[in-house]
Design a protein around this nucleic acid. Structure first.
Lengths: 249, 249
DNA sequence: CGCGCTCTTGACTAGGGTCAAGTGCAGTGG
DNA sequence: CCACTGCACTTGACCCTAGTCAAGAGCGCG
């Protein structure tokens, strides 16, 4: 089940993710492949879609990490969400002419452009797959909402813990997590921009989490020392990631 | 154009809102009416949909104010968004079996249940109207994202100003705003829960905004004293409310 | 009249931001 | 092989924003 033992696994993260919602048959798997147009490989730190871009495309992230963000007048930025393999980029804002968020690659990435015509076909002809795709979009929204709650109501320590636990759950769903941790290529400055705090303060909070024997973030790796206790401390309840869709039965 | 001069106006807030995106023809207006099932009238402070409710319905809010929120373990709550006449309730999470947010009425309200079967019909047979509905859903998402940015990156004073300006823009779109203000039935405690601060601190910040001759919140009414300056101060840029959809032309 | 609710204000505390200095390390060039 | 540079991370000292605790004011309602 480890990603490095099965190279095709990561590239197929999307179908694996959807598999959490329904069994993806081989025909549906083919449809899913057809949805995805030409691949592109992009280095780290590149703007994939910029804020205000017109008629931007939507993509499936096949490898690597991306974040979506909004810039502020004063030069700061707020990271809205982190995208990991199997996630969509810009799908939900496809209907708006201009993207209100920017997307930037955090590592080297592999993207597949979504063929919008085929997408409409799929939505009309393959109801099960359509439901699965809409489920994924709804889940992305729930993630943003939980992020809002996280920033609005938890102090930095619980907030950080919650965020790291969420990433673990999401990565595990696409086979990129281990029992007690995961590879996390984010620099502290990016994590800070996601959590709405300064990098300096985040650094202190990470030290506190480490000294409390809860979680260690070192050498681009998250290691949970006591995930149960951490989840209790953070008030982490993963039902928002776990929703079953209402059309299943 | 004033709401009080045209009583039918408010009840038709949705079609008016969609009118900002495309001209709603009379046939489309009829479809829109057919979408909406039986009305219900509910008093203030009632739970319309509770957190974790299964197989909840979706509604159009025709009159009054509602908020969507999530509760935390410790008893606190974070208000995710405020709904005003013409807004949907629970539409985007219709595909998830359980609602991850609760909805509570903030005033007396009038709801129309959305007929889900008819909705699917509309989506397939009336593409222009379908696009308009999806536009509205995308816009709601953009509002939540901007809320996230607001809480993550602005101090309470700018945050409050931004939130009040957003409400003004949204209310104006459905004919419920005046040039320099609007009726705002929110108690300070609710506003505080939306902004992620304590009611006490919000109270002080509102005083500051008043003393700086920017905006007055008194007797359930918002009055802007200098909207230009306030918008500059808050970094308010309403493009996220104003998006045109990409399928218009 | 008294109860409860919202709003207001004061005094104190603590969480988080700002400024500043310093460490460790990978990459580059002498 | 060893400076030199740049970047991410670390730590300390200080200050300010926002939370906590507490008390009181204004007002609608039974």
């Amino acid at each position: 089940m480890k990603a490095e033992k099965n190279p095709s696994f990561q590239a197929d993260a999307l179908s694996h993710k959807l598999g959490a919602f329904l069994d993806v048959g081989s025909q549906e798997k083919t449809m899913l492949e057809l949805l995805q147009g030409p691949q592109s490989f992009i280095g780290a730190g590149k703007e994939v879609v910029y804020e205000g871009q017109n008629n931007h495309a939507a993509y499936v992230l096949r490898k690597g990490w991306v974040c979506s963000y909004k810039r502020l007048r004063d030069g700061g930025r707020q990271i809205v969400d982190i995208q990991i393999p199997g996630d969509f980029l810009g799908l939900s804002s496809l209907l708006l002419r201009t993207s209100d968020q920017g997307f930037i690659s955090l590592t080297e990435i592999e993207l597949a452009k979504i063929n919008t015509n085929r997408l409409q076909e799929v939505l009309q002809t393959t109801p099960r797959l359509a439901a699965a795709l809409l489920w994924a979009v709804s889940r992305d929204q729930a993630i943003v909402v939980e992020h809002l709650v996280n920033i609005g109501r938890r102090d930095t320590m619980a907030r950080t813990a919650h965020f790291l636990l969420e990433l673990h759950a999401r990565l595990s769903l696409v086979g990129l997590g281990t029992v007690d941790g995961y590879h996390c290529p984010l620099p502290q400055s990016v994590l800070a921009d996601a959590l709405g705090v300064t990098a300096i303060h985040l650094n202190r909070v990470l030290r506190q989490l480490r000294e409390d024997n809860l979680v260690i973030f070192r050498d681009s790796a998250i290691t949970f020392l006591d995930r149960e206790r951490l989840a209790r401390f953070a008030g982490f309840d993963l039902t928002y990631l776990d929703h079953k869709a209402s059309l299943t039965d």
